[in-house]
Every structure is written in C-alpha cells, then in structure tokens.
Design a protein around this nucleic acid. Structure first.
Lengths: 151, 151
DNA sequence: CGGATTTTCTTATCACGTTAAGCAAATCTT
DNA sequence: AAGATTTGCTTAACGTGATAAGAAAATCCG
C-alpha cells in the first residue's frame, strides 16, 4: 500500500518553484528601482547589511546578505570602485578585512528608502499585514530547520 | 506624525531575503542530488514541466518553469545535446517549435524521484503538513497579486 | 619550535539571471 | 498586397550563483 503516489509533486505545489515565483514578484519592482540607482540587487543587500550592522568582515557580510564568498569578493570590488565602501586591514588578523559603508553608500540607501517603503505598503495593503507576518514567520521557521532529524 | 519609521525594514524581516534563505534551504540538498545526476536545477525544472504537460513550445516552457527565454534558449540547447529533449518545427507557425521530452529525460526524472520524495517527507515531518500547505497557499496568493491596485 | 590543519579570502570556470538588441515569421492596417 | 507592428526565439554583454582550487595567515599539536 505504498505505491499510491508514483508521480512527482506537481510543479504547482512545488515549494522551490513557489518560492521562486514569489521572490520574482516582490523583486521585480525593486530591481527596476535599483537599476535606476545604478546598483544591482546583490550590491543593495550588501549596503543594507553594512548600514544596519556597521563594520563587518566579508565572511559576516556573506552570512547576513545571503551571498557566497566568491560572489561577495566581486561585489565588494565593484562597490569599492563606486566609492560606496572602504576596506581596512584587520588590526590583529591579517587574513581579515574591515568593510565599512561610506557616506555615498548611505546616501544611496536614503535615496531609495521612499520607494522601498512604497513597496512594503503595497504588500500590506494587498495581502494584509497579518498574512505578511505569518508568511515571514513560516519562512523563518523553514530556514531554521536542520537536516538529519526527522527523515 | 509620519516620521515614526525612518529606517529601512530590518533585513531580518525583509521578505525578499527571507524568500531567498528559505529557497536555499530547500534547494541545497536537491541541487546536490541533481549534480550527481548531471543536470542543473533549471534543466531539471524544464524536464519536470515537459513530463507533466507534454509537448510545449519554448514560451510555454519558460512560463511554467519560471525561466526567462534567453536562459531557456541555452538550456534547451544543452538538454538537446544530452539527448533529453527533441525539437520539431511547428506545423503551421514557423516561428514556433515543439519541444518534447525523450525517454532518457523521463528516465532521469524517475531516477531521482525517490530522493525527491524523501525531501518532501522531511519537510512535512519537520514543519507539519498543514504549515507547509499554508506556506504554499500564501506564496501562491502573493504570486497572484497585481501591481497598480492598492498603492 | 615546526609541520599539519584550519580559517579567510581570492581566482577560475561554467551555467544562469537580466537587460537590450537582433532577426524572421506572423499579424495588423489601410 | 505593401508597410508597420507584433510575436517567438536567439544572440550578446555583464553580473551573479555554485563548485572547486589556490594562496596566505592563523591555529593546532606533538
């Protein structure tokens, strides 16, 4: 009696694809805004993390901005070229660096704050704040799961 | 009384980042499985869609697999090279093509079905089937929103 | 101390994401 | 039917995603 489901789950009810579509829905307009500002979505995430948490090393940035280190290496080079971050050697550990956002970087965030807020308001209006919070809670719960437990 | 929230939403409660993290959580193990099978996540999505819906043209595949046409062009070339799909000209509209999955493609899906199911079971066990369904419903609702309504 | 291991970051490679531009076939318009 | 527009797909260019490999500094350990 264990052969009742012999087909893969339909893509309609596939969690990976649903996550992808939802992400595209919210990122589309943001990407447009950021393109006008001259930064990519990923560069924006790095700036946001630095603005929020202060001086960090690349490993910490990667963790908080959900980027892999090889990608971050390139992004930091780009942002440095644009004058939006600075790098200093770590005082005691010469492997590490201290990355800091510049005033120009902070200004870019400020310039896009209003539009960013507008998108959040749109989400709340059309989905309801409670559903939105519920969705965030579920996503965070999913992210907190560890493999190797209940298989 | 309108300057109460002057900072951007914390990245902790940022929907785009939460979606990204959740997606990484579920895709990580799947990617590993697919790498062993010699296909990428996107190639897998294309095969799944073709298996599920039969003969499609590239535009329809792009829609259902959540890929952009330029990416799909490359992916179809790769899959054709691997013998997992075939292309035929459309009988009446010479701009279109008819893409079909081959037996080899179907076999690849079958080969990975069990592992795919294991991941679904893990999700249900650790999050609960109801929460999982709720999450899918919320994601689909979000995807169904249209801009330009309640801003 | 000194070799082995680990950590931190970079480089390299290939595939994909995104935007724009290009081209051929179909459709619309008059 | 001829020209303009639209549709379907491809190509190009650049940045990122993912894996592996490399290099330098710190740490571990006998």
């Amino acid at each position: 009696m264990e052969t009742e489901a012999t087909l893969p789950p339909l893509t309609h009810r596939s969690l990976p694809i649903a996550l992808l579509r939802a992400r595209e829905k919210v990122m589309g307009p943001i990407r447009q805004m950021l393109a006008d500002a001259g930064v990519t979505e990923q560069q924006w995430r790095v700036l946001r993390v630095l603005e929020e948490r202060g001086v960090l090393d690349p490993t910490e940035i990667a963790e908080h901005s959900c980027l892999l280190l090889p990608s971050l290496t390139r992004i930091l080079q780009t942002l440095q070229g644009k004058g939006m971050i600075t790098r200093k050697p770590h005082p005691t550990d010469r492997r590490k660096q201290q990355i800091r956002i510049t005033d120009a970087g902070r200004q870019l965030i400020l310039d896009n704050l209003q539009e960013s807020r507008r998108l959040n308001a749109w989400l709340k209006n059309n989905m309801g704040e409670e559903k939105l919070e519920l969705l965030l809670d579920l996503l965070n719960e999913l992210d907190g799961l560890e493999r190797g437990e209940g298989e």
